[in-house]
């Protein structure tokens, strides 16, 4: 049996005429943080609810550790989720909220104190959660996700509304959970956040999977690295670079944007042909550029999946 794996096959969800999720195929692997990236309304939350058996797929399936979620007897021991931090009864204390969840999965009571300690809510454990700030609620939701010591963790937009300290805390937590060998799936519409947290990305737009790849590959392939060159005889340099197979564009500001040939090769060629260079610079594209390229063209791109 697969352990700590989420696998979707042809996963689709339609609400009347609108298709929220459209034939998703993906596999979320352990030991890394997988970012689930897409604009608001792309179908991320719907997918997460289907993983948790809350929404039922119109067609296709999504399996947790090889099983349908609704067939898992003690789910909190296999997968923990933070969906909506405000989804608690405001009149219940943090401790009782977690205690009721623990009881539902045969989790011993001392574990409640342990997760409260881990998320830093021990001092407010016996306060009603209605008075909690969004940050405290978010921590309580994470405590609930960690309660069963699960091998898989799901976080839906965990940094929404958090202060910088809280964001750093969640980021560190997710990285350490993945480092322990757990499977971490985190959704976000913030590309900057994904760039800092995720190793692997599932990019989704209008319900369809646009990319399933590592962060670095997405950046490399999504936009492509390029070299920016300033030369005295730029027209001649451009022609000579094209001869060796580079793509060159002449920008209005006088620079040459070169792709297909590395900066070292350009420098050697320039020296051999007697060029005077004023600038030779590697430009690394950002995740944002890669992302916009993906979503604008809605190009389905997929890296080869390791067996």
């Amino acid at each position: 049996m697969d352990t700590h794996v989420i696998e979707a096959r042809g996963l689709s969800k339609r609400y009347g005429a609108t298709t929220a999720v459209d034939r998703l195929d993906f596999r979320v692997e352990p030991g890394r943080v997988t970012g689930f990236l897409g604009p608001n309304g792309a179908g991320k939350s719907t997918t997460m609810r289907m993983i948790l058996g809350l929404d039922l797929p119109t067609s296709g399936s999504v399996l947790v550790n090889g099983r349908d979620y609704q067939g898992i007897v003690w789910p909190l021991h296999e997968i923990g989720a933070l969906l909506d931090a405000r989804a608690v009864h405001p009149g219940r204390t943090a401790y009782r909220h977690l205690h009721s969840l623990a009881a539902a999965n045969g989790i011993p009571r001392p574990r409640v104190d342990a997760v409260l300690e881990q998320v830093g809510l021990t001092s407010v454990a016996h306060r009603r959660v209605g008075g909690f700030s969004l940050g405290m609620s978010q921590r309580l939701g994470i405590a609930g996700a960690l309660l069963g010591d699960p091998g898989i963790l799901l976080f839906d937009e965990p940094v929404n509304g958090l202060d910088p300290d809280g964001i750093l805390w969640i980021r560190t937590l997710m990285r350490s959970l993945a480092a322990e060998g757990r499977t971490v799936l985190v959704s976000s519409h913030l590309m900057s956040e994904m760039a800092l947290t995720a190793d692997h990305l599932l990019v989704i737009g209008e319900g369809r999977l646009l990319a399933d790849t590592s962060l670095d590959e997405l950046i490399a392939r999504g936009a492509g690295d390029r070299v920016e060159v300033r030369a005295v005889e730029r027209a001649r340099l451009a022609a000579e670079l094209r001869e060796v197979g580079a793509e060159v564009t002449l920008e209005p500001d006088g620079t040459l944007q070169v792709t297909g040939v590395g900066s070292a090769a350009i420098g050697e060629l320039a020296a051999a042909r007697g060029h005077v260079l004023h600038q030779l610079r590697d430009v690394t594209s950002s995740l944002e550029e890669a992302y916009f390229r993906l979503t604008e063209g809605s190009v389905v791109y997929r890296a080869p999946v390791p067996a």
């Binding site: 030991g31 190793d199 950002s286």
Partner: peptide, 22 residues
């Protein structure tokens, strides 16, 4: 942001976690 993007890639080289809680 781009400074962070160029961090060395993290690979799943850790063994799978053995969750202890039952």
């Amino acid at each position: 942001m781009s400074a962070h993007v160029t961090e060395p890639p993290r690979r799943p080289e850790h063994p799978q976690v053995r969750t202890r809680l039952r």
